[in-house]
Design a binder for these strands. Sequence first.
DNA 1: TCCCATCTGTGACAATCTTCACAGAATATG
DNA 2: CATATTCTGTGAAGATTGTCACAGATGGGA
Lengths: 254, 254
Amino acid sequence: MGGLLGLRKVKVKKPERLAMLAAQLKAEGVLHLKQAAERLGVSEMTVRRDLAAAPDTFHYLGGYILAPQTERDGLYRLDKENDEHAEAKDAACRRVAALIAPGDTIFLDCGTTTPHLIAYLPTEVPLTVVCYSLNIANRLAQRPNIRMILLGGLFHPAAQTFSGDEAIHAMEHLRINHAILSAGGVHDQQGVTCSNFNEVPIKQIAMQRALRKTLVIDSSKLRTVRPAFFAKISQFDEIVTENGLLPRASHQGA
Amino acid sequence: MGGLLGLRKVKVKKPERLAMLAAQLKAEGVLHLKQAAERLGVSEMTVRRDLAAAPDTFHYLGGYILAPQTERDGLYRLDKENDEHAEAKDAACRRVAALIAPGDTIFLDCGTTTPHLIAYLPTEVPLTVVCYSLNIANRLAQRPNIRMILLGGLFHPAAQTFSGDEAIHAMEHLRINHAILSAGGVHDQQGVTCSNFNEVPIKQIAMQRALRKTLVIDSSKLRTVRPAFFAKISQFDEIVTENGLLPRASHQGA
DNA sequence: TCCCATCTGTGACAATCTTCACAGAATATG
DNA sequence: CATATTCTGTGAAGATTGTCACAGATGGGA
């Protein structure tokens, strides 16, 4: 250290540094990487490495360290895992949002596509949304001015959905304008399919009771098949992907 | 439009974009500038300008848009606000957990007390929990090996609960061993009361159908009254507070 | 229709963040 | 004390982000 006598360097080890970081963040909420490095008396590189070693303790975004978020836990697990085509799904949902009419009672399917729609739902006009997924319900709960009806029943952790006779029975008392469904596979011959058999009855009832049926998918689903069949392509009024409406020709199949 | 019928170009103006951003953030907490631009269908530059025009609405750091702190954890809002007696509630729930038998089907009330119980529910033995609150459902969903049945219906944002004839109807098909209820007020003369009238029917049905009825409260609720009456003190098999069981003498009242 | 004010997209440049490899320092171990 | 291991700092290259100016697009009024 350049022979500057008396300049005592205070050495702090990793666990201690992490504790100091946590304390600073508690007080300030956000810390710039450069600040953090200065305050801890180490290089930015070291701070980076510390953070990388404790990935769950802090949030790091674009040069800033954020205080850990208390509990945003498993809420949006599904999406995070399976957002391969998140952008396509989002784009498709944006198109679907334009199809929604004021005053509609909408049935909103579960899955990883339909959650994207919620951000685009209009909130200045009356709107009722019927759903059967915990994930969807959580998002709807956070939007103002949307009447939400959740079809309850037994919870299926894998899909984060509810099912049961009661849910199906409940639907029979609802007047649905517009069912917005999604699917894991859409195939000319094999029709429209999904992965979970327990979703089939509720999807079918929803389609049966809805005046208008819209299928929203990202285009990677086209020409694929999943185990559980729930509808023919021709049963839908329109099929929306990130590229727009599917040409009507396809509707003649299956 | 490449022959894709009905492909409508959606033009969105600034106020609307800000609203969409806010909604997305509410749901996801963080948004990358690039994502935001794509979802809104505008350039990154425009998003930047939008953000600059509404400096108090969003947090922006190193390429990421953050939801204001308050909205990021909307999920557990209820608790945060009203956890004055959180420790007492927690202690009371710990006592209640000891009353739960393996294989029980439990009805779990909504409110700010009952969520504390969930952490203490046993997961090594079969257990079914029936609930009607989104808050409770979210917590149960995160515990393994618990069968959860959610009574659905119309969502009430203020209390984060569901209600409706269907929910009540659904209960009639369930065999409940043990109803664990909470209350906003417990009073010798006025009985057991809560704040929301729409919770009354479901609480009453649950009590009617349950073999054992436990009331769990923190002791600050004793000798207070809330607007909605739902049971007499004597209807409960036990009343548990952070200090233990309420002496049986009190059960003679109301 | 034209003009004006405003909004929006683009490209260029500067500033910053990210990652990597390497070398020196600190620490542990025998 | 020597060696091995781990930890830390540095600098450079590449990717990303921030800022700015300018031009085209849009949307009212006159």
